[in-house]
Design a protein around this nucleic acid. Structure first.
Lengths: 229, 229
DNA sequence: TCAAATGGTATGGTTTTCATACCATTCGCG
DNA sequence: CGCGAATGGTATGAAAACCATACCATTTGA
């Protein structure tokens, strides 16, 4: 008996590229105002034709994530911090439950990744985690903090030596689109505790620290869901 | 800065259909020897053309999952129990680590789903869980037990009211390809405990029961990884 | 012997993707 | 001021994937 068979819907190549780019902005990897690579270069890194990439860029611009300018110093530029912040806030306010389901998914997979990272991390992976944690603590702006937070989680996923958990972390971050959070000082301490636990290979402490990180994320999410800040 | 950009590889429609069908067999939803719907009917439920579907079926046959016969009572038939069991065993023996990574991913998401299902299940969802649990306990053959186990987990995913966790459960089951396990009597009791906890909305007990289920899964997996049984 | 159900094959059209070339705009530099 | 370089914008035709449709081949049971 076939179960839960839904129509097969092939995703167009430009749709995949669009999702990838949008996820990069949602996750905060691309900073506000940052310039994307030139179309010809970006098409090559994606391994797709420039025509197809341009479809994705056009859609991304229509959604308000980027603006495209031409000329010698033209290109695709990520929207500015205020615009992104507003988009993220509205998204959460429009459907808080959806954001919470994503947060639950993130928590489940990031917690597991933290556990296995504590058990399996190699020295190079530990070095990468340290770098991301230090950069987070030293961040001068909220977007920078968000970027380094994402980098830390990616490193954690890789350190877990589990490709499925790492992919789930990437997916979760790309779906979420958190508003920029000015209070990253408090979060920095908890992230440091997670790093310490991972360094000591203390599984229980790592899980506890990851939970503490998520507690702060939940707090922030609830604040935005209530329309706050 | 763009992070972790890999080439965009659009999956062909027939490739998606192939993955879906293979996952159904891996998960045990399709029983050994079972007849798939006729090509014309299956193509319609997938919402794809018969030509495209046939590409998927041909690949599935080449991989040994089905055999195709023609004639009035012909069609695509799932391989028999012995063949599937052997394929599953070999898969685990060839790369035990990969199977364990999938199991870790499954455990993380099924545990979270069990927690939220205990908190949020509605009465119809509870009824569906009860039916699957009873069918599991009453299974006459190992493939039937595997099928009802999958049905229970799907129901758990839906009862969690979290589409991401539900999708992860589907994904994990489709990736795993567990060999048929003759000892489902012991597992039945633990599954019953999970059902009870979900019924009582006892979050902690549900998590504990789900962990107990996974402990049995791990035991079975280790046995097969060692080339046992 | 034939009708029905099934898989197997062939044909032509539509959509998507691609490679390629060329045009238009902007900016820095001589 | 003018030119060259870097960038986005546009156009064209080929290749591939997908589809709708029709028809052929095989098997079974009435």
């Amino acid at each position: 008996m076939l179960w839960g068979i839904r129509p097969v819907e092939a995703q167009a190549t430009h749709g995949i590229a669009l999702d990838r780019l949008r996820a990069q902005i949602h996750g905060g990897l691309l900073l506000p105002g940052e310039k994307l690579p030139a179309e010809r270069a970006l098409a090559e890194t994606f391994g797709i034709s420039r025509v197809t990439l341009r479809e994705a860029l056009g859609a991304l611009e229509a959604e308000g994530y980027i603006t495209i300018r031409r000329g010698a110093h033209g290109g695709a530029f990520v929207a500015d911090e205020a615009a992104l912040h507003l988009m993220a806030q509205r998204r959460i306010a429009r459907d808080p439950a959806a954001a919470m389901r994503i947060m639950e998914f993130r928590a489940a997979n990031e917690l597991a990744a933290a556990r296995f990272a504590a058990l399996r991390r190699t020295l190079p992976e530990l070095k990468r985690l340290r770098a991301a944690c230090a950069a987070y603590a030293a961040a001068a702006t909220a977007p920078q903090a968000k970027q380094h937070n994402a980098a830390f989680l990616f490193a954690l996923g890789d350190a877990s030596h589990n490709p499925h958990l790492a992919a789930a972390i990437t997916q979760g971050l790309g779906l979420m689109f958190e508003p920029f959070n000015a209070a990253w000082a408090r979060r920095s301490a908890v992230l440091g505790a997670l790093l310490d636990a991972t360094e000591r290979q203390d599984e229980a402490a790592a899980v506890a620290a990851m939970s503490a990180v998520h507690a702060l994320d939940w707090e922030s999410l609830h604040r935005h869901a209530a329309g706050g800040r």
